[in-house]
Computed example of a mutant assay.
Amino acid sequence: MTLRRDVLATVDADRGSFRTRLSTLVEEHGLDGELVPPRSADPDDRAEREAMLVDRVRALDDLPLGLTLTGPAFRDTPIVYVNRWFRDWTGYAMEDLRGRNPRLFQAPDPDAEVRADFRDARADFREALSTWSRVTVEIRNRRSDGTPFTALVSLRPLFGDAGTVTHWVAAQEPKSTETREAGGNAPE
Rank of each mutant, 00 (worst) to 15 (best):
P110N: 10
A93T: 07
R103C: 01
N83F: 02
V80T: 14
R87H: 00
R115N: 12
R103L: 12
L104R: 09
G99K: 03
T70R: 10
T68F: 07
R84D: 07
P72A: 15
A73N: 00
G66W: 04
G66I: 06
T77A: 10
Y92Q: 09
D76A: 12
P110E: 09
T68G: 11
P78F: 09
D61M: 08
P108S: 13
G66H: 00
R115G: 06
F86T: 09
A116P: 00
F86H: 15
P72Y: 06
L63H: 05
P64Q: 15
A116Q: 14
R115V: 03
Q106C: 08
T70H: 05
R103D: 12
R87G: 03
R75L: 14
P110K: 02
L67Y: 05
L104Y: 01
P64M: 10
D88Q: 05
G71F: 01
F105K: 02
V80G: 14
W85D: 06
D109T: 06
W89P: 10
D88V: 00
T77E: 08
E113K: 03
P72C: 10
F105S: 08
E95F: 04
D111S: 06
G91H: 02
D88L: 02
T90I: 02
V114Y: 00
P78Q: 13
E95Q: 15
A116Y: 02
D109Q: 00
P110L: 01
T70I: 11
V80E: 15
A73Y: 06
R103S: 13
G91A: 06
G91K: 05
A112R: 12
Y92E: 05
D109L: 00
V82Q: 08
P78L: 10
L104D: 04
Q106K: 05
A107P: 00
V80H: 11
Y81L: 13
V114Q: 01
L67W: 06
A93S: 09
W85M: 14
F86E: 04
D62N: 14
L69E: 08
A93I: 03
V114D: 01
F86R: 00
R100V: 03
A73T: 02
P72Q: 07
D61H: 10
R115K: 04
N101T: 08
V82I: 09
L67M: 12
D109R: 05
L67Q: 13
R100F: 04
T68I: 15
A93Q: 00
L69R: 07
I79K: 09
D109I: 03
M94C: 09
L104M: 15
P110A: 05
A73R: 08
L60R: 00
F86Q: 11
R84H: 09
P110C: 07
F86I: 00
G99H: 02
A107Y: 11
R87A: 10
P110G: 09
L67E: 11
R75E: 15
G91S: 08
Q106E: 11
P64W: 12
L65I: 14
T90Y: 08
T70K: 10
G66A: 04
R103Y: 12
